[in-house]
Design a protein around this nucleic acid. Structure first.
Lengths: 181, 181
DNA sequence: CACTTCATGTAACTGGTTACATGATTGT
DNA sequence: ACAATCATGTAACCAGTTACATGAAGTG
């Protein structure tokens, strides 16, 4: 039930419609907790019943109407209560790691190609994060209390992508010492 | 539907009962794809229907009977076909990262404590992986085709844990520069 | 005698994915 | 004319979690 809390965080930053939340979950926050629009609308409807959020309909001029959701006092209280709960230990869940582990029992060459593909994806993602950091946080020493945590999560993304690239390089060196990369 | 493939990998390494698979998913493979015993028994039953695995009942002497599952030819074919599919891009899903991002809108001190707790967990996990590596792979240059990928996945675990520890340290330095750690 | 480990399962619920559905506006 | 973007949803299905259930053997 943690999409609810991810939505709380996003609405605490800024009120939004379901559509706008969907776009946020396609980038920024979504790189750490992804969600489809169906899931977001469903969860939003439940949160409205629980009175964690309230909607005001903005008639769209020319465009479709938007239901803009904001956190209620109960929603902010729920968010605070959640930040007080210790986070459960995180277990990564990686189909890619499982596939590498099983490569000797399948098509090893195909998995090698998959490692190169995976590496490329992490290079792309790292570049995206670094552009974002350079653009939005040119001076990380001077950030407000709201900005600093957002920047630090971005830093986590950068570190994770870099670690994954290094891991892919180690695998390629071990599995394909002659290969041209 | 990827637990099926994780089970294929595990059974390709060695035939096992549901109980034995459950224990494997509590450690080794399970650090990269976790599953509960209920899920494993359910998936195993479905895989038996699909004839990807076949069971032979071993009467337990004194102990309960065990249904030992092995991969069928169809199961091995399915595993090979899966290794040929490109892995989908991986989106990490981290409630912890979401919580850090939202800390300014909740109880910041509690989240700081959570970062320290999270760091401790990663230190413990890293130590576990490193003992495992030292014990089972003292000479990584000389590994068989089956052992090398298993070792490389372990290396991925080590790199991931180290990156997470470094990230926690960066966050603690930025959020609590005076704090004693 | 109570607790843990071995061993297998069912049932109910929650969360997430895929497919389907609609309709207006803007850009090529 | 056609595709993309804005905007909101329903329905069916699949995967994962939590709770419940049973029973024997070994350990302190």
């Amino acid at each position: 039930m943690s999409l609810q809390h991810a939505i709380c965080v996003s609405l605490a930053e800024q009120s939004a419609s379901g559509y706008e939340l969907t776009r946020r979950f396609d980038r920024s926050l979504g790189f750490f907790w992804s969600a489809s629009h169906q899931q977001i609308y469903r969860t939003l409807a439940r949160m409205e019943e629980l009175e964690l959020v309230s909607a005001t309909v903005e008639p769209g001029e020319g465009a479709p109407d938007r239901k803009v959701y904001g956190l209620t006092a109960a929603g902010r209280a729920e968010l605070t209560a959640w930040t007080r709960e210790p986070s459960p230990p995180e277990r990564p869940r990686s189909a890619f790691a499982v596939k590498v582990r099983g490569m000797a029992h399948g098509d090893a060459a195909a998995v090698l190609a998959d490692i190169r593909r995976q590496r490329d994806q992490h290079v792309t993602q790292l570049a995206y994060y670094e552009r974002n950091a350079a653009k939005n946080y040119p001076d990380p020493q001077r950030l407000s209390d709201e900005e600093l945590p957002v920047y630090l999560v971005l830093r986590g993304g950068i570190r994770a992508e870099q670690a994954l690239i290094d891991w892919c390089d180690e695998m390629l060196a071990a599995l394909d010492p002659e290969g041209d990369r």
